[in-house]
Design a protein around this nucleic acid. Structure first.
Lengths: 326, 326
DNA sequence: GTGAAAGCGCTAACAA
DNA sequence: TTGTTAGCGCTTTCAC
């Protein structure tokens, strides 16, 4: 392992000059700086993060806590975080809380300790998390907080409703996700708020698991609601719902239009391809990272909330409201 | 921040006793150990990993390098790694090389430096990577290496071929993935080897991008091959292929049986649900982690290769060979 | 602009 | 069994 001492000796300077030349170049004479840089490169010197952090009180690493890394939603956010962190020269410790509230706190405690700050994606137990994180800055994705990044639910449902209204739908159902989901609450709220101005009646249905089965189990409720179109908590629920109503002999979109949420890569692949409300999840990860980095640099006051735009991708699962009613 | 000194003072012992009590309990008198543990817990002491690592020459962290974290395949592996690493009390630095060979090496160099060893998932430039990793142990997933974890391609294609043969298929095409893909090579090799004993003629087709478009672009070739069934490089390719042949008026599985690869969560969601050769990807991640940990503990010779079993999940996209030929 | 020296929190000889 | 001590590689005053 090549250390500052090796570089210093080779360049004929002291170790402090090496350190400065590499991390605060403006404090060193240009020629010295260049010489040190050249020697460092030639020797293949890589600063030891742990040592640097130990002294400077930083770790040079960020933490990312997700409920389920195998979920494409979080995988996309994680990718954005990893990407941007690299650009900032920071490492990312990734931890999967396995959707377990208790584990979330426990794991966060450890994570906070070995990072400069952590990004919490869709936390299940935010209050406990704040305690677990201690004094380390926390950026929250998909939930409220002093430092947070969310996608604009109101804009998303407005787009969906406008699209459906334009197709002649007058009664639209909403198949919700888990009652504990913050986004679900946001969407229900937004739906109620914008229904009137869209000229559409919204029928909020109950909570369903965010799975294919959850979607299937909502089929009866949807059909019974008399709605000609439905918005679902996410794409997977939409797939389950489509499958179930088809088994009842209904056609999508002729008899029922379906709008998914999240616009995952699933949406274009299923039949019919799903119209879905989406957001750029990698961008969510990137912006969360930027927020954390800015906060660490002290460039930010204690509070900053970002709302990222949502889009509606129209595919095959929505069409004109032909039926009078179900 | 509470340090060893605080615990030592509170417990009335020296800092080395605290260190020992916590990391080598058997070297300390039971009563002392218990007292230290109690005080540490009460004070909420968390050892500083960076400091410990600095002194001990370990970092307490593993690295995981994937070509694309948003790819469900790698996301699943990553989840397994994160999970098991946590159980071993190690952190995981995750890096996404964005499918870029040059970036892979560069990123690995940095990763190797701040971890005790790294897991390389489906590396694109293994030779360069060995250099970049220096002396740090490397566990390779999905490719050959001194320390490696792969899924059993031969078993997978044997299962698929047996299944198709049982349905009466006598001519089976294989739509390959990128020419640089190691798994693709393994599968082609295995296919050629087991074709005879399955009583099936295998028609290897060209390389196609591992995308929906890639699958669609293979449609003509597949139809032209006269095969009644086809095995594809992965599920996404299968979806593209199914879509394209359907547009030509063929039915799946009545006119063409399709077997995907990887058994991603896509498989059960598309129509028709895809028969697919799969493996437990989280387990792949877990075993790779175990291998690396064992190697770090010196429990392993320099070489160890694991081949994990594959399964065939039969769904709706395969059926009896009714056609004489296309 | 540069160097000497202290010390971040911890572990591992070495003593006792 | 326990304590003392010397660093791990680096950053950062403080002199010069």
């Amino acid at each position: 392992m090549v250390t500052v001492r090796d570089v210093a000796r080779s360049a004929g300077v002291s170790i402090s000059t090496v350190s400065r030349a590499l991390s605060a170049p403006e404090k060193v004479a240009p020629e010295t700086r260049d010489r040190v840089a050249a020697v460092a490169a030639q020797l293949g010197y890589q600063p030891n993060r742990a040592a640097a952090g130990l002294r400077a009180g930083r770790t040079g690493a960020l933490g990312l806590l997700v409920p389920d890394l195998a979920n494409p939603y979080f995988a996309a956010v994680a990718k954005g975080v990893a990407q941007r962190a690299r650009e900032h020269g920071l490492g990312v410790f990734v931890v999967d809380s396995q959707e377990d509230e208790a584990l979330e706190g426990e794991v966060l405690r450890g994570l906070a300790h070995q990072t400069d700050g952590v990004i919490l994606a869709s936390p299940r137990a935010l209050e406990a998390d704040r305690v677990a994180a201690g004094t380390k800055p926390l950026v929250v994705v998909n939930q409220d907080g002093p430092l947070s990044v969310v996608t604009d639910a109101a804009a998303g449902v407005t787009l969906a409703l406008a699209h459906l209204a334009g197709l002649g739908h007058r009664r639209v159902a909403y198949v919700g996700g888990p009652a504990t989901s913050w986004s679900d609450g946001q969407r229900r709220h937004a739906l109620a708020a914008v229904a009137a101005e869209s000229g559409v009646e919204v029928v909020p249905l109950g909570a369903h698991p965010p799975t294919v089965e959850g979607g299937a189990s909502a089929a009866a409720e949807v059909v019974g609601s008399g709605a000609t179109a439905v918005i679902t908590f996410n794409d997977v629920v939409a797939v389950g719902l489509v499958r179930a109503v088809r088994e009842q002999g209904l056609r999508v979109p002729e008899d029922l239009s379906v709008v998914g949420f999240d616009d995952t890569f699933l949406a274009p692949l299923v039949t019919p391809a799903l119209t879905s409300v989406g957001a750029d999840l990698r961008e969510v990860g990137r912006r969360a990272t930027d927020l954390l980095v800015a906060r660490l640099a002290g460039e930010l006051e204690t509070t900053a909330s970002l709302s990222l735009p949502t889009t509606l991708v129209v595919r095959e699962s929505t069409g004109e409201a032909a039926r009078a009613s179900l």
